[in-house]
């Protein structure tokens, strides 16, 4: 394991009853790397993503974040979670808090930043994702694309070492997908470490350093986007790509 390995999954297994959702998964994400996980539904992509900050427990194997094994519970786990941002498919903005408060809350209560400083940072980030004017609204008053950009700002406010994206555009109307992908592409260019579960192949080609293809709980193949999309080596990846790229 080298110094720059930020997220390391070693022989990770997870079962839901009889269903073996993660099979001996090994994955290493380096500092600054953008890893896009693709694959058919039910492949275990989201479970893998959620396991990295332990929203999903694992049955065996180890997950290491920046050299520290993921603690199973308590304060240590909370501390590590604060270092890894998470962006959900359904946004999950705090429904009773304003947009601004959504971005301020973690900074004040977890990072113990003075409120004034947290508000300043939140406004900067909201401007950066193009929601500055909506800061005092409630999440429900925003479009899906706007809400997801707030969610990204909320994750960024914690100065995370990495951000996990669990199908961030799957719940969006088509015309709002790009505004979210644009923000993510910018983040990727700026060197943020990202693990992105998505069906957006355009984003994978454009922004990924590495594409990981999963099927039936296994990592089937991985490689640079040009190599993977140009000439996938496994049958399963070939048939998956044939199905989604014909349109």
């Amino acid at each position: 394991m080298s110094q720059s390995d930020l997220i390391v999954l070693d022989q990770v297994n997870k079962r839901f009853g009889d269903h073996h959702v993660l099979r001996d998964v090994n994955l290493t994400v380096r500092q600054g790397e953008v890893v896009v996980i693709i694959g058919p539904s039910g492949a275990g992509k989201s479970t893998l993503c959620r396991a990295i900050n332990r929203l999903e427990t694992i049955d065996s194997g180890t997950i290491t974040l920046d050299g520290t094994p993921l603690p199973s519970e308590g304060r240590e786990l909370a501390r590590l979670r604060a270092e890894v941002g998470m962006v959900f498919q359904s946004f999950n903005l705090f429904a009773h808090k304003t947009v601004l408060d959504n971005v301020v809350l973690g900074q004040v209560h977890v990072l113990k930043r003075p409120r004034e400083q947290a508000v300043r940072k939140a406004r900067e980030l909201l401007d950066r994702v193009g929601i500055g004017a909506q800061a005092d609204k409630l999440p429900a008053q925003l479009s899906g694309g706007q809400q997801q950009r707030v969610a990204i700002a909320r994750a960024l406010a914690m100065d995370p070492k990495a951000i996990l994206f669990d199908e961030p555009t799957s719940a969006l109307d088509p015309e709002m997908v790009n505004e979210v992908l644009d923000v993510m592409t910018t983040l990727a260019r700026e060197g943020m470490t990202m693990v992105v579960v998505t069906h957006e192949m355009g984003f994978a080609r454009r922004a990924a350093d590495r594409v990981v293809f999963m099927a039936e709980g296994e990592i089937v193949e991985q490689g640079a986007p040009s190599a993977f999309f140009g000439a996938p080596s496994s049958d399963r990846a070939q048939s998956f790509l044939a199905k989604i790229l014909t349109h």
Binding site: L80, G85, M86, F94, V110
Partner: peptide, 24 residues
Amino acid sequence: GQAEAARSLGLGFVRTLALITLPQ
């Protein structure tokens, strides 16, 4: 998802309850 978002920010059980889920 509200509690998951709170936990992913690094909030523990008590503060997730006090700040996010109980007020709602």
